[in-house]
């Protein structure tokens, strides 16, 4: 089963890569049918990615969400899913040209991690861990999308509106509200992540919050997005300032995800 998962994983990487190239081609050649194929490939990649995760879950006999490799591949899955939903929901296929490279980077990071399946230490054997990590995947995916939207917003201001871009990039107001929607989704799920994580920590370690660096950084991330929401409610702070915050928020997400494990010690480092 692991062999099959491995093959699927490689296939998924290829599909995401091809989709990314096609999105770029769409921007370069300005031909609408190309983007349909790109989205199709991304969708197919997502289906196979889901199958790979299911296979790994079956092979391990548990949710495949407990080490760096498993979380990284699931993160890419979440980003791919949320970006596809946003592309379809807001008829915004050009989003793919920006989200696909991020998805590819993350799945590339996953490919560099050890794929071995280890037995779980007792603290990690918990249903709350399942809730904790699966909500984190959606939250991170949604924040990834808002990061990309923030960048598109900032670039849109720089680029002179041309016919093609004008047609395929929503207005500033609409971009702002789509980014707001993705931050909302992310913040709701991040709150679920933090709360289920606290419940799990209480059961596993006897303390629901111990200012472990990963906990602290997830709180920092949560606060940064809370600031984003409040700023957006103030006149003059929508648009550019909010977009900058959406980008900064994702930097915090990435630091919480990779930086904390790399630079700061704590129970979340799985070492």
């Amino acid at each position: 089963m692991l062999q099959a998962e491995n093959t699927l994983f490689t296939l998924v990487m290829l599909l995401y890569f091809s989709a990314m190239i096609l999105y770029f081609a769409f921007v370069a050649l300005k031909k609408d049918p190309i983007v349909k194929v790109a989205m199709g490939l991304q969708g197919l990649g997502l289906v196979l990615h889901t199958a790979a995760l299911v296979l790994r879950g079956l092979a391990a006999g548990r949710l495949p969400l407990t080490n760096q490799y498993e979380f990284a591949t699931a993160f890419a899955w979440g980003l791919c899913l949320v970006s596809l939903i946003f592309m379809l929901r807001f008829t915004f296929p050009l989003l793919g040209a920006f989200s696909a490279p991020v998805t590819f980077l993350i799945i590339g990071y996953a490919a560099m991690q050890s794929k071995e399946i280890h037995n779980l230490m007792p603290a990690l054997q918990s249903n709350w861990l399942g809730f904790h990590v699966s909500t984190a995947i959606i939250a991170y995916g949604a924040f990834g999308v808002s990061f990309v939207l923030g960048i598109i917003f900032l670039l849109r201001d720089k680029m002179k509106a041309q016919g093609f871009l004008d047609e395929h990039i929503p207005s500033r107001e609409k971009l702002d509200i789509i980014a707001y929607r993705s931050v909302s989704l992310g913040l709701l799920f991040l709150s679920f992540t933090i709360i289920t994580g606290a419940i799990w920590a209480e059961r596993a370690w006897g303390s629901y919050w111990s200012w472990d660096p990963k906990e602290t950084w997830s709180l920092v991330t949560w606060l940064v997005y809370a600031v984003y929401l409040h700023l957006r409610l103030r006149k003059g702070w929508q648009g550019k300032a909010a977009a900058i915050f959406a980008v900064a928020g994702f930097v915090c997400v990435m630091f919480t995800y990779i930086g904390v494990n790399t630079f700061l010690p704590g129970v979340h480092s799985y070492k």
Partner: peptide, 18 residues
């Protein structure tokens, strides 16, 4: 505005302390 200032201060302090 005061709330926003507080939230910024809190996140800065948490980040620094970690």
């Amino acid at each position: 505005p005061f709330a926003i200032g507080l939230l910024v201060a809190l996140s800065a302090v948490c980040a620094l302390s970690s």
